[in-house]
Amino acid sequence: MSELERILYVEDEPDIREVAQIALEMVGGFTVKVCSSGEAALREAEGFAPDMILLDVMMPGMDGPATLKALRERPALAAIPMAFMTAKVQPAEVAHFKALGALDVIAKPFDPMTLADQVRAVWETRNG
């Protein structure tokens, strides 16, 4: 089974993007590509060939769920595990996000020191 190495991270807010990048690259040791919008993710995703995709839910233009749906329509990305990052973590909301095809939901604000572990934990659940 393959290891989690390449992560595509889609987030419109530059400050959070930078923190997450540090958290995933420096703490987690992942190779990370960040995109600032759903549209950019659609342009870049196939070329980057990520092992996993993290999506902010609320973004101007294409939001997280719309981006997830569009990415899933690409054959090369159809099976890539995707997770949402959001402040909306009520059980009902989480269930809704999962129904959209997300593997799980990572709560915001996240702790930069443990984000990589959280992402890895979500990754481990991908076939279970």
């Binding site: 419109d12 807010e13 400050d15 959070i16 923190v19 101007p60 915001k108 604000p109």
Partner: peptide
């Protein structure tokens, strides 16, 4: 939009 960003980034920091 900007309040949303502030809520998210403020919490992160």
């Amino acid at each position: 939009q900007r309040l949303h960003k502030l809520a998210g980034s403020g919490g992160t920091f």
